[in-house]
Design a protein around this nucleic acid. Structure first.
Lengths: 147, 147
DNA sequence: ACTGAAAAGTTCATTTC
DNA sequence: GAAATGAACTTTTCAGT
């Protein structure tokens, strides 16, 4: 499927402002709101649009620490871990990756004690390395059309 | 600021379904739509809600590869890189982190040739390590209230 | 992709608790 | 201070073109 330039205009708006009304989007891209609605629906159905997400400030929610934790799973422990990781409230995102480590997780934590307790839970699945997130330099940069 | 339980209910809905109408949220949490609207507005103003984001499938948009690239910046090159990184279309997210590497980026790329060309651009700023993302095990897991 | 009418949702002032 | 109500306005949905 190829995304036409009108759909790219719609996606550009939605990627940074998901709660814009169809009418407002229509005004900005120059079509009527039913047309916007139909295009968005089609993109949802085709899987071009995956989901609409609200980001909540971890800090405001009481999570003082953000970290990236990589895991190098022990033999036979990767599969059980892939199931277990879905149950951790601390894990916001988790990727399976190539290389020496198998897994990288983005986690939110109350404090250092919480971090320590969380890492302790992981130790049965593999070796971990932890990097504290100091700041977010680029945040959800919208995807653009290929040239 | 502490988030009350009604606001947590609203946030729970919004985190996974950012385009729900205020009226629909109100129905599900048991208050009127003006009350929902006011609560959301207040959370936006206080910075509890940071933004509303639509995720577009990189694959459907023509990006066949997703990778995590870490960078260990050369002496005096970190600051210029922090400015430069905001200009790369390939970089969806970028964090500054503690540890041996200073930076980790989530990037989307057309193909291996594109990856190679992108890494070539980074080489002036520091040493890179690239890990290809095989799959996303956990995706935007909503933040929950602290116990 | 547009139009037009009906249904649904939002906004704002006011009232209530 | 927080939420409900009701009127005016806006948006969405769904028909037909």
């Amino acid at each position: 499927m190829s995304i036409d330039s009108l759909n790219w205009k719609i996606l550009k708006l939605l990627q940074s402002h998901a709660r814009l009304s169809n009418a407002e989007i229509g005004r900005r891209v120059g079509i009527s709101s039913p047309a916007v609605s139909e295009r968005i629906k089609k993109m949802e159905d085709l899987g071009v649009i995956q989901d609409y997400h609200t980001s909540v400030s971890p800090f405001e929610a009481g999570y003082q620490l953000k970290a990236l934790i990589t895991l190098r799973a022990f033999m036979g422990k990767l599969k059980p871990f892939l199931e277990k990781v879905k149950t951790y409230d601390e894990v916001v995102n988790c990727y399976r990756i190539t290389g020496n480590e198998n897994i990288v997780m983005e986690v939110v934590l109350k404090n250092q004690k919480h971090l320590e307790a969380f890492i302790d839970q992981l130790i049965v699945y593999g070796e971990t390395k932890t990097q504290i997130v100091l700041s977010r330099v680029v945040k959800n940069n919208p995807i653009k059309p290929l040239k």
